[in-house]
């Protein structure tokens, strides 16, 4: 009886485990797994990129598994020989970490039909950038009558207690600080001027948000009137009826490359390549550029249109002039020291 119960238990546990971890039963041939970001990214990829990929590849099976960059890196690191993800999506900081930890393969550039059409900044041999994220100034047009034109406007006395920033946990916060350093004569290697500038900004600071998403709430609640902000995030807020406007500062809008990578040892290497190719096509990038997605394209064959043409750039040439790219290799080297310094010095 005891034995019976035990074997019953084993069966039940096995069945339960198979139910809970369906991957166990077909570990050999799994569909292509693309770890995109959560939220609006996932929506955009589900609606545009996945159908385009399946159409071009005879309905090949694929799964979107949205997660943060750090989780992608942790998951692949935990099973390097048989990674559970085939294609990763990264902000510039984590991308360098993934490359540094030898988790991604070089992109087969010579096989690619679209790589050469990407603008120079998006051509990354370890994984091209299918999209840009753009950071500029965000303001409430009801409270700020003259649109700001420069990062320096955040220091204007009229914005006393009205400015919001984010801490350095986010790519946005870190990139913005680097831009401030450049404005004051510093660089990625010399962040000191930025911290001095932050000290002067304190009277104006109404909030240091814990993440860029929290800035949106602060705009909605009238807690802040002006802040650095992500172009896409602002469009979503605007669509919800929140009075916000985006403007590229004259120093240049900060552009972050969102890069896409083939995971090393992926069992679906060929399909992974095909998915990335799909993300680089002018068709997919054009659809994603239009409302409601408004994702900035990197393929020079895409004709800029709509809101992006209005507030960012009309064509690739103007885009190159108005965007600033940052050296994330240098930034990553010192980021932990900056975060520590920010933790200590920025108390309001």
């Amino acid at each position: 009886m005891i034995l019976n119960r035990r074997s019953l238990m084993t069966t039940a546990l096995t069945l339960g485990a198979m139910k809970a971890f369906p991957g166990l039963s077909f570990a050999q041939a799994r569909p292509l797994v693309f770890a995109t970001f959560t939220g609006s990214w996932e929506e955009a990829h589900k609606a545009v990129l996945v159908p385009a990929f399946r159409k071009a590849n005879a309905d090949a099976a694929m799964v979107l598994d949205p997660m943060l960059s750090v989780d992608q890196i942790a998951k692949v690191n935990a099973a390097k020989a048989n990674p559970p993800i085939d294609v990763m999506l990264h902000d510039p900081g984590p991308a360098l970490v993934a490359i540094g930890q030898d988790l991604v393969e070089a992109y087969p550039v010579e096989k690619s039909a679209y790589y050469k059409d990407l603008i120079a900044e998006a051509q990354e041999p370890m994984g091209p950038a299918p999209f840009f994220q753009v950071v500029g100034l965000t303001y409430n047009p009801e409270a700020v009558k003259t649109p700001p034109t420069s990062w320096a406007d955040l220091w204007k006395p009229e914005f006393k207690g009205r400015v919001g920033i984010t801490n350095l946990n986010s790519t946005l916060g870190t990139g913005w600080l680097v831009e401030i350093a450049k404005m004051r004569g510093g660089s990625e290697a010399n962040i000191d001027p930025a911290f001095k500038a932050l000290e002067e900004l304190k009277p104006n600071l109404a909030a240091v948000a814990a993440n860029p998403g929290a800035l949106a709430t602060l705009f909605q609640q009238g807690q802040i009137d002006i802040s650095p902000g992500n172009f896409n995030a602002i469009q979503i807020l605007k669509a919800r009826g929140v009075p916000v406007e985006f403007v590229a500062p004259k120093e240049g809008a900060i552009a972050f490359k969102t890069t896409i990578h083939i995971v090393k040892n992926s069992p679906n290497r060929e399909l992974a390549f095909k998915l990335i190719e799909a993300a680089l096509t002018p068709e997919v990038q054009t659809t994603l550029m239009n409302p409601p997605y408004l994702i900035v394209p990197t393929n020079s064959k895409v004709t800029m249109g709509g809101e992006i043409a209005r507030v960012l750039a009309k064509d690739t040439a103007e885009l190159k002039k108005k965007f600033v790219f940052q050296d994330w290799k240098k930034i990553n080297e010192q980021r932990s020291a900056w975060i520590e310094r920010f933790n200590r010095e920025i108390k309001i």
């Binding site: 943060l68 750090v70 890196i73 970490v97 946990n169 240091v208 814990a210 929290a214 709430t217 975060i339």
Partner: peptide
């Protein structure tokens, strides 16, 4: 803590998150 306290008030959970998630330390 993070939504009402914001990014400039650091408590242990956020400190932890920062080290693990942002800095990969």
């Amino acid at each position: 803590q993070s939504l009402v306290g914001g990014g400039q008030m650091l408590f242990m959970p956020m400190y932890l998150y920062q080290q693990a998630s942002t800095l990969q330390n």
